[in-house]
Nucleic acid binder design. Structure first.
Lengths: 229, 229
DNA sequence: CGCCGAGTTGACCATGTTCAAGGTGGGTGG
DNA sequence: CCACCCACCTTGAACATGGTCAACTCGGCG
């Protein structure tokens, strides 16, 4: 029985522990089911867990898209990240989830008991290192997001989002958005109207094409990259 | 010889590995100097390292304040965090520093060779777990910062900054700012003028008092907390 | 005393938000 | 099959928040 802790953790060239061959480490488990993923499904917009819930399990996306977000008391929402197939989310240092997680579309996930994994990690150095890498990449992602939110204009934000999502979509020219305009807005720290207007403007400028609302064709990738600033 | 990886990592009640007593773990080292901190000093506004530099060492603040930040090509700057005594910064998963680090004021740091630490971590489970905790807390901080930058107004941002910094200042009523208005602005994703205006407004509202520019007396902490929204 | 960098303040402006109206498309029920 | 509905999206106009530009103040230091 084996568990692979996610392509998101091994994709980039990030040699953490230079001496070891931790890369693509696959965690072998002989028999016990403590860390075996249970397959679970969530329908669109279903809450997977809420901020403050006790974090007994974490998840890996098999299929679909998940958003992790925080809410302010008045309902304002900030989406921290969209998680796609292979991504791990909901792994916490503390006892509670620090964010909420919701299914952007119908999703298949595997859930993993945290306790079991931790016990395993305590004896398995490679796994420990993998968890570390997961955390470091999460930090890097959040820091990049801060730069996006703090210092970029609406066009720059939208362009950055499209470029980022194009990678998710496998470098294809036409990207299919799993999320609504509201999701995009809450990810970029904008309103739904500004996102819509900005996309329309980009289409008028012949940088993109929007056949249907959820389908965006990137006509001028170079322009998009320079718009990111 | 021993190294303590920072109060910032052991301060909060964050039981990562529930079975172990990792808390306040002190890394013992017998003899070799690979991970022993060298004491280093940096004058105000000196660069400690730049984004893209090879990350051979990381640092722990002994005295003073350090900012870590990113720059856009046109000079816009986003400060990711201010690091105070006890905080570790500059520990990277990859080969390069992902942010720049600069001394906000005259600083004393200890620098630690990364390679040495990694070799040690490969054999030392407690240290491995501590590094993991460092990364997880860094991720949590960056995520909170994203919420601040994306979904809050100028007053809310400034109020949040003051409350946060009050903790750094040991819960004292009067806080001494090590950083300039420009630093605060770049941390909050605002301009220097907006920060200044917002502080003035808070003073007019009798929430704070500003005896000198770098000294802020928090008169109404409850009001500040509610302004954070 | 005068300079200089940091901070403050004001007037104007631009970007993005708010509020409101209309469009579009997929699904359901007659 | 078509009509209707509803959620999602787009567009417009007025508005507000924060940015820009510029003048001025303050305090430290030669």
């Amino acid at each position: 029985m084996s568990m692979q802790l996610g392509s998101s953790m091994t994709g980039a060239a990030l040699p953490v522990f230079a001496h070891g061959s931790w890369k693509n480490a696959t965690i072998e488990r002989d028999g016990a089911s403590a860390t075996t993923g249970c397959s679970v499904q969530f329908a669109q917009d279903r809450e997977i867990y809420g901020e403050g819930d006790t974090a007994t399990v974490f998840f890996k996306v098999v299929e679909g898209v998940v958003r992790t977000c925080k809410f302010l008391s008045d309902g304002r929402r900030q989406i921290d990240a969209f998680h796609v197939a292979g991504d791990v989310f909901g792994f916490e240092a503390g006892v509670e989830y620090r964010l909420s997680a919701e299914a952007v579309c119908n999703c298949r996930l595997t859930s993993h008991r945290r306790r079991g994994l931790e016990e395993l990690a305590a004896t398995d150095l490679a796994l420990s290192q993998q968890l570390f890498l997961y955390a470091m990449q999460g930090m890097a992602r959040a820091q990049d997001h801060s730069l996006l939110l703090g210092r970029r204009s609406a066009v720059e934000k939208v362009a950055a989002f499209l470029v980022e999502w194009a990678r998710h979509a496998g470098g294809c020219q036409t990207i299919i958005l799993a999320m609504t305009r509201q999701d995009i807005a809450d990810y970029l720290g904008l309103t739904i109207e500004t996102v819509s207007r900005t996309l329309s403007q980009l289409e008028r400028d012949a940088v993109i094409e929007i056949p249907t609302a959820r389908e965006i064709r990137l006509k001028d990738l170079a322009a998009l990259h320079s718009l990111k600033s």
